[in-house]
């Protein structure tokens, strides 16, 4: 009986040990289900875009398209009827404008529950009040947060509870192929935390 329990324990440790992997380490590790072929879906055309789309986001009932259009960066569509409700955002240097077509865009909900669009630019993040921007058909920047981090290698995500999640991609000191970098993930704010998801960088011939 003791021997059986011992072997079961050994097998359990082996199966649960993937979160102790040398190169990938998480608190819990799940093996994804086999990809059963799901239902087939036929997509319906909503719109043919006049500008090239650089990003697609949803928050509440709004679909936000980030367009390669210097005079109309954000196109907002109401998902209840697929109608365009607003277009705003220009390339420029004023408060409601952007240095270039944004690449790092995400949505959060403010403390009052209103949807916000966050745009990370060089050394700053602009926070757009989506509801007001739709009402005015003009980019209404609610807040500008200055960054002290390098824009090129950091993704910074501000959350509604005022903390800040950071994803550091690569630095000049670590100029290796994209496949082999060791990303860093950490949280700023009242209770800072770093997650060592990739504890080691692999050493292949590509890293030389």
């Amino acid at each position: 009986m003791k021997r059986t329990i011992f072997f079961i324990s050994v097998i359990y440790v082996l199966f649960s040990s993937c979160h102790g992997n040398r190169y990938y380490s998480t608190d819990v590790c799940l093996l994804s289900d086999k990809q059963e072929t799901g239902d087939s879906i036929i997509l319906q055309t909503v719109n043919e875009m006049s500008s090239f789309t650089r990003g697609l986001l949803c928050v509440d009932n709004y679909l936000i398209l980030v367009q390669q259009n210097r005079d109309s960066i954000f196109k907002i569509i109401d998902s209840r009827n697929d109608s365009v409700v607003s277009c705003f955002g220009k390339v420029g240097h004023s408060r409601g404008e952007f240095i270039n077509i944004p690449q790092k865009v995400y949505c959060i909900r403010g403390k009052d529950g209103h949807p916000l669009i966050c745009v990370q630019e060089i050394m700053r993040t602009k926070i757009i009040d989506l509801t007001k921007s739709i009402e005015c058909n003009k980019c209404f920047v609610k807040e500008i947060i200055k960054e002290d981090k390098d824009f090129l290698f950091y993704y910074t995500y501000y959350s509604p509870n005022s903390s800040c999640f950071n994803y550091k991609t690569i630095s000049y000191e670590d100029a290796r192929d994209n496949v082999y970098i060791k990303p860093l993930f950490y949280n700023d704010g009242e209770s800072p935390k770093e997650w060592d998801v990739f504890p080691n960088i692999i050493t292949s011939e590509f890293s030389n």
């Binding site: 979160h19 040398r22 190169y23 990938y24 998480t26 819990v28 093996l31 994804s32 935390k193 692999i202």
Partner: peptide
């Protein structure tokens, strides 16, 4: 909860395989 969850496809090669 300060917790991480990894979801891995067991049929994929791993970082160890790449190395």
């Amino acid at each position: 909860e300060n917790k991480t969850i990894g979801i891995i496809n067991p049929d994929s090669y791993t970082l160890e395989d790449i190395e």
